[in-house]
Amino acid sequence: MAYARAVVRVGVEKRNRWRVRLEERIVRTLLFLCALVGIVTTFAIVLILATESVGFFEQVSLVEFLTGTVWTPTFANPSFGVLPLVTGTFLTTAIAMAVSGPVGLLTAIYLSEYASPRVRRVVKPTLEVLAGIPTVVYGYFALTFLTPLLQRFIPALEGFNALSAGLVMGIMILPTVASLSEDALYAVPNSLRYASLALGATRFQTVWGVVVPAAMSGISASFLLGISRAVGETMIVAIAAGQQPTFTFNPLRAIETMTAFIVRITMGDIPHGTVEYRTIFAVGLLLFVITLALNLASEAIRQRYKGARL
């Protein structure tokens, strides 16, 4: 059908070739502009984060921002040490990775090296569904299910805490880590497995001694991407981890992450142009730089292992 239509159209257009050429140029330019939108977006992000941050750092010294341990930008006597937000983010990210790292890797190994097609048919859609659940739903789950459950075993656990937010975040990131790690394991050529097995190694030894080391770069790339997701995740921590910037590494306490801080400030009506308003862009810049570095590192590792010949 597509063929026939093309033939007819071309026959008609041939009579006014200049019009066809003009149309071709216009369309090409329009499509080019579409492709340009991506670059414009990146520039816009960098530009707004940078300009507002410059305004912020005219009033707050960079040293105070990066080394201070008290974060009270909305108080009458404000203090702008971002470290409590950084430790809060670090804490939830570390807990999330403690779940999704090992479980994700084991899931990937199990799916790619052990599981029968029947098991795969169950597990893969389950992971896809877990990946498709909105983060606000995970937040609800952490706050109303996991925290009360954990409080039965850990009485010291506060109502808002880094622990259950981090654990649920780990479940959220699990599909990312698992599917990217599985891709990496899948890319290991079978010849390596056969060689190892032919030498008398067991399957366990083959997996841990040959396949996993060969896929190590891809696995670490998936971990880096997982960390980046955890750092940028907003809703779970805004709901379940609390909104108290505390300089602590205690997972049982209420904390505040960089993302949750941005939510808290924008929910209140902070007037435009004030230092308080600019803090969200300074924190946003820090968040952007961290996630960009992680994403670039992950991409670089992935590209390298794609090129590597085993």
């Binding site: 992000i45 707004i48 907003t234 941005i262 924008t266 968040l287 952007f288």
Partner: peptide, 8 residues
């Protein structure tokens, strides 16, 4: 890029 950055 984290979605909250798009919000900013």
């Amino acid at each position: 890029v984290p979605s909250i950055i798009y919000g900013l």
